[in-house]
Simulated scan of single mutants.
Amino acid sequence: MTDTTPHGPRGRTVLLAGATSAAGLAVTRALHDAGARVVATGRSAERLTPLADAGAETRVADATSLAEMTTLAEQLGPVDAVVPLVGGWRGGGGLAGQSDEDFDALLPALGAVRATSRAFDAALRASTAGRFAVVSSTAVARPLAGGANYAAVKAASEAWTRAVAHGYAKAARDAGEPLRAAAVVFRAKALDPAVLAARVAALWEDDAAELNDRIIDLG
């Protein structure tokens, strides 16, 4: 069974969590221009200013905190998409250079995936076309010694997201309803904010049953 909801982001509410980056700004602009309501979060009110100028509603909140994301979910009500954008890179030095300090610095990206997916699970499954999307790296498919920490965190984020996809499918199947929510992974070698923005805006071009549990290469 597939969903029959209208395609496109117009009229949908999209949460960009940890969006104070070039990618967050690009995605905000693309979604706002397409008619979506964009809610962008970050830990700094000052760094959220460009997102507000681009048309987003902004909230100071920690995307890695389940408590703060749960409170935000309660405040926002219906939500049609969640995209955690917490990122960062630490690497180099071969395997010996993969320090605990660097690994700990990368973990917030996984923390944001876990916190947002859990906090907004009910809202996305209740949406007529819920979407959960994460940004990963081609390093998962070809990890290098100098980027082992980074690849490991990205691989864990992908595994978590695929588990989210399974949860959506199982919930729909158990309820005897069409699958309306989808979780996807975007993989990029070097992230181009414009490419990501266009792909996020296109999340509703495919029915959930075709999109759920897909890994999409951004080049």
Results as ranks from 00 to 15, higher is better:
residue 164 V to F: 03
residue 29 R to P: 14
residue 101 E to H: 07
residue 74 E to M: 00
residue 135 V to A: 12
residue 217 D to E: 14
residue 193 P to F: 04
residue 51 L to R: 08
residue 13 T to N: 02
residue 200 V to M: 07
residue 123 A to E: 13
residue 73 A to F: 06
residue 67 A to M: 05
residue 19 A to S: 08
residue 150 Y to A: 10
residue 4 T to Y: 10
residue 191 L to G: 02
residue 121 D to W: 15
residue 209 A to C: 05
residue 78 P to F: 03
residue 56 A to F: 03
residue 59 R to H: 14
residue 105 A to L: 11
residue 85 L to N: 00
residue 65 S to W: 12
residue 27 V to I: 15
residue 153 V to Y: 03
residue 189 K to H: 13
residue 7 H to R: 15
residue 42 G to W: 06
residue 213 D to Y: 03
residue 22 A to N: 13
residue 74 E to V: 00
residue 136 S to M: 07
residue 133 A to Y: 09
residue 58 T to L: 11
residue 175 A to N: 07
residue 76 L to Q: 09
residue 116 T to Y: 04
residue 127 S to C: 05
residue 98 Q to A: 12
residue 79 V to Y: 04
residue 51 L to Q: 05
residue 6 P to K: 12
residue 132 F to H: 12
residue 24 G to W: 06
residue 92 G to T: 01
residue 160 W to H: 15
residue 77 G to N: 11
residue 18 G to T: 10
residue 96 A to H: 07
residue 170 K to V: 12
residue 131 R to V: 11
residue 15 L to N: 02
residue 167 G to T: 05
residue 87 G to I: 06
residue 8 G to W: 09
residue 150 Y to I: 14
residue 88 G to Q: 04
residue 199 R to S: 14
residue 125 R to K: 13
residue 128 T to F: 11
residue 140 V to N: 01
residue 149 N to F: 11
residue 103 F to W: 15
residue 200 V to L: 08
residue 81 A to Q: 09
residue 192 D to S: 14
residue 174 D to P: 00
residue 80 D to E: 12
residue 76 L to F: 10
residue 165 A to F: 09
residue 37 R to H: 08
residue 132 F to K: 03
residue 44 S to L: 01
residue 105 A to M: 04
residue 164 V to Q: 11
residue 101 E to K: 11
residue 211 L to A: 15
residue 97 G to I: 12
residue 59 R to P: 02
residue 16 L to Q: 04
residue 67 A to C: 01
residue 24 G to N: 02
residue 58 T to V: 15
residue 9 P to R: 09
residue 150 Y to T: 12
residue 21 S to E: 08
residue 73 A to E: 11
residue 45 A to I: 02
residue 112 A to W: 07
residue 200 V to A: 09
residue 141 A to K: 15
residue 125 R to S: 08
residue 125 R to N: 09
residue 211 L to Y: 12
residue 179 L to V: 01
residue 158 E to T: 12
residue 196 L to P: 09
residue 129 A to M: 12
residue 91 G to A: 06
residue 193 P to L: 03
residue 63 A to W: 08
residue 65 S to D: 05
residue 156 A to I: 11
residue 80 D to G: 10
residue 127 S to V: 03
residue 77 G to D: 08
residue 64 T to D: 02
residue 135 V to R: 00
residue 81 A to E: 06
residue 93 G to E: 02
residue 94 G to H: 06
residue 37 R to S: 04
residue 101 E to Q: 14
residue 17 A to F: 13
residue 215 I to C: 05
residue 165 A to E: 13
residue 2 T to G: 02
residue 182 A to P: 11
residue 56 A to E: 03
